[in-house]
Design a binder for these strands. Structure first.
Lengths: 279, 279
DNA sequence: CGGGTGGTTGATACTTATCAATGGCTGTGG
DNA sequence: CCACAGCCATTGATAAGTATCAACCACCCG
């Protein structure tokens, strides 16, 4: 199925709250399950091996905790279906109450909160294997936006089924605990950055963090990674302005710490970046 | 048992990393369980009703989620013992591997991360009913400092026992999920504040947050709460300087938004504060 | 009484936001 | 194929917000 690429829920720079104009249309696409996708749902057993969008077979290859949880799901009858979301579209609306939990199969996304005046703060970036709206869906709404940066493919599970299956596992306690602890640790890192580092340090830290994360997922060749982020994304993640990000990034390149070209980023001196973070 | 009040693990303003001087002494007190306290452990069944330090019987009275978890522990044989920690002492060291999880019975504490240069960032404030080192103790170390602000009393449980008991509960999934989701939501709020609000807004937000939290715990009379925080605590929580906090707090009082006297804080205009947060 | 901690205030310097102008790039429609 | 509109990145000038430094005072406690 094809989405209309013009229908952008997000304005550049600022996120519009509330729906208006063509927003009705989005809401339908986002909240409801498009009918032809719904058909795929039927009784398909989940298996990364059959996941057409993920040649890397992330869910099996990854040694990450969330993957462990998912891996075992594979042995059990669990319905799921795939969904494609084009770049810039909202994946999860803060006011949406969903019965599904989603795992990213490919592409980049972010979760963010927005202030009444439209400024937004990115809370985390999501890559293949990450869980959208961390296990919260069956309680209340997450309160966060989750938005696709690139085209994204998701695999969606029924929360109730996931919950049942996890409940039967003896080590569920450890799985959940570790998952959440890791999640919280990332939030803490961000808090420290925002509270106690200057612009340069925040950006350097973000770059190093993303590199480490993508290395774990085999998405890095040598020292370079695909880098679909716009400078406004970096700004929203680091609490800075896009203008300022541009200047800092320029400095970094002039100092031969990194190189950005063709939507990919190369780290020339990880030590140098680390030094900037520490300063 | 009495602690030497002079033995301060924390320097004012900056937290010293690494141990030196009388640090050995602290470490012993902190890591080991003082022997006379250990005696209390024996086979005492946990009950808030018998908790000498908590007349308010928080754990039963509170409708909070963590309390639900704890409440049920009461029906089961679960060993615990009480520990008193004097103000300014470290409750949990980032390098400490503990078999125990603790719940605050009375007093104020904070958890924080520190940078190599000694600056620190407070991640959260802890009050009665809050769990120290959120359920992580049996995996790796939390990486955070938890430090007493006032004198604090804790009740300590064996992680393995808590885990066993929680594992038998059918609704454990919901309990854990809600607990962590709430935890993460608080972190998100802080991230937004640090990333996208100015000093005034961050401080106003913190005051309102603390007031709401303490209202839930019946620790507020009218519009005033006990307020043992030093301005340096506020600075470390909001990513500002103590000097700047002083100026902002002065402004707030001159504008009749709040009044601080005698280690207690009164909110004179919640709407006014909220307006500052939003600005 | 003296020392340590905590709070206040003013002067100055640094960091970052804001504003404005420019140019490259891309997708679109004539 | 070209012109155009949007989006994105860059750059410089200026303004606002905070940090830093230093001095001072108040208070508590031994």
């Amino acid at each position: 199925m094809e989405f209309d690429r013009k229908c952008n829920p997000i304005e550049s720079g600022r996120l519009k709250i509330g729906f208006s104009g063509d927003a009705k249309h989005q809401l339908k696409i986002i909240k409801g399950i498009p009918s032809d996708v719904e058909d795929v749902l039927t009784s398909q057993k989940y298996s990364c091996a059959t996941c057409p969008a993920n040649e890397l077979n992330i869910c099996e290859a990854s040694n990450r905790l969330r993957a462990i949880a998912v891996q075992h799901l594979e042995d059990l009858p669990l319905n799921s279906y795939e969904q494609k979301v084009p770049a810039r579209r909202i994946i999860l609306h803060p006011k949406e109450y969903s019965e599904h939990m989603s795992i990213i199969c490919s592409g980049w996304a972010f979760s963010a909160m927005i202030l009444p005046d439209g400024r937004k703060q990115i809370l985390s970036f999501l890559h293949s294997g990450d869980v959208v709206s961390e296990f919260t869906p069956w309680m209340n709404m997450s309160g966060k936006h989750v938005v696709a940066i690139t085209d994204v493919t998701l695999r969606k599970f029924k929360c109730s089924e996931v919950k049942n299956i996890l409940s039967e596992r003896a080590d569920m306690f450890e799985i959940l605990t570790k998952f959440w602890a890791e999640n919280r640790a990332q939030a803490d890192e961000l808090i420290v950055s925002l509270g106690r580092r200057r612009g340069e340090g925040r950006i350097a830290q973000l770059i190093l963090f993303l590199m480490r994360k993508l290395v774990e997922r085999d998405m890095v060749t040598g020292q370079t990674m695909m880098f679909p982020l716009r400078q406004s994304h970096i700004a929203d993640a680091t609490g800075l302005t896009a203008v300022h990000v541009s200047k800092v990034l320029g400095d970094f390149q002039r100092q031969d710490l990194i190189r950005i070209e063709n939507r990919s980023l190369t780290i020339l001196s990880a030590e140098g970046l680390q030094r900037v973070v520490a300063s």
